[in-house]
Structure formats: structure tokens, C-alpha cells
Simulated assay, not measured.
Amino acid sequence: MTAATSISPIPVAPVGLTARARRFVEVDSVRVPRRGLGQHRRKWIEHGAPAVEIDRAAVFQDRWGGLALPPAPFYEGGPRILGAGCPEGSTDEGWSFRAGSCRVSMAYGFRIGSDGAFGIDAYRWTPLHASTDGWVESLALAAHAGRWAKTVTRIKGKAVESLDLVGFEPVPEVQGVTDTWWRGKDSLIALYRGEAVGLDAPRCLEAHVYGGLDEWGLHGG
């Protein structure tokens, strides 16, 4: 392979992730060659992007650019490859930039908001997790829970609102905003609200309930 098409089969996980997420990145993901943003800086500034926003995109690119993660269990798999796009401004939401290319043709894309949140730009901007770290942690947790759960139940639409979360605690590492994870005695619940909120479509609510987990299945890193 040439340098332009080679991949790194064992990417180094960014500092700050849990052990579970580090394993997920380093074992289940690949890193393709990532482009630096320096070559685009002048053009982006000419198009009106503030230097500070370009710097913010460059930090994202250095940390996550080129990382190809396994498909997410929702959102049509999530971004195919993480990578920063040109910052774009909005009077209501401030500056944001594209977080990566979609796997399929979709009604929305994935972006990094003005506060660093990872979310979707659907009918409205909808932050899913407070950071990209949280998004990656959620993918790692879904892969882990799916591997160790004895049962996996998917609940859709209005039925999601009737889920009883008494006795459950939020999983902090996923940094949930619109999407959240909950840990119970022997189960984990993922609540995917992003499409329902972002597209103003309650039918898109979905929850995944992972049951029959032991201590390792509940935590595992």
C-alpha cells in the first residue's frame, strides 16, 4: 500500500478514556491517514471562520481525526470516519464543525457544538453527549454490554417513556445530554432520544435494555 492508503490496525487511544473505551478503540477500531488542517486554514479564514474556531477544530482533528470506529447501534451507525470540517457559524447556536462523514445518506449529520458537545444537526441542533469522549464511551459500553448480556431488548416509540428507571443510576463516563445510559442491579439501559428531539419525531425514541449482566458485564472497565 502507498502512504496515502495505508491504515494503522492498532490505533493508540486518546488519553482520558476508561479502560473499556481504550480497549474498544485499540482493538475494534482502525486509524486511517488523517489530514492536517493547516492547508485549509487560510481558505477557512477567508470564508469567515474565526481563527479560534479553526484552532478548536484542529484540536479535535489531532485527537480523533482518521479514527474509524465500529458502527453505532443507532443513528445509522454514526460517523464512518471521525474528522473535522470547516467551522460554520449560527446566531442561535454559535460555531460548530462537522465531526465526520456519514455511512449512508441521511437527513442529518454529526457535528461538534460550540461547547464541544457531540451531536446531530437535524431539524435542530441536538447535543447527544457533552464531548466526543462521551460518544466513544457510549459505543464502547454498547459493544461491551452486547457481548456480556444474556438478553437484549429493543423498545421503540412511546413505550420508551414508560421505562421504570427507579433503582438505576446514570453512567457518568458517557457524559449523556440527550442520550443517556443507566446502570441497574443486573442490567444496563441505553436511551436514544436524539432523533426524536432533533427531528421532532417521538416515534424515533428507542431504548436498548441489556439484561442478565454480572458485575463484570455491568462495569468492565
Rank of each mutant, 00 (worst) to 15 (best):
T2G: 13
A3C: 12
I10W: 10
I10T: 15
V12S: 08
V15I: 15
L17M: 04
L17S: 01
T18W: 03
T18I: 06
R20Q: 06
V25T: 04
E26N: 11
R31M: 01
G36L: 05
G38H: 04
R41Q: 07
K43F: 13
W44R: 01
I45P: 08
D55Q: 06
D55S: 10
R56S: 03
A58K: 01
V59L: 11
F60C: 00
Q61Y: 03
D62E: 10
R63V: 08
W64I: 00
G66V: 01
A68C: 10
L69Q: 02
P71L: 07
A72C: 09
A72G: 07
E76F: 15
P79L: 12
R80P: 04
R80Q: 09
R80I: 11
I81P: 00
A84S: 02
G89L: 02
D92T: 12
E93I: 14
R98C: 12
A99V: 07
G100S: 08
S105L: 13
Y108G: 01
G116Y: 09
A117T: 08
D121W: 04
A122N: 10
Y123C: 11
R124V: 15
D133N: 06
D133W: 01
G134F: 02
G134Q: 04
S138D: 06
A140T: 04
H144E: 13
H144M: 08
G157F: 13
K158T: 14
A159M: 07
R183N: 05
D186H: 11
D186S: 14
A190L: 14
Y192V: 13
V197F: 10
V197H: 03
V197D: 00
G198D: 02
L199W: 12
L199H: 14
E206H: 12
V209L: 15
G212F: 05
L213T: 02
W216H: 12
W216V: 15
G221H: 03
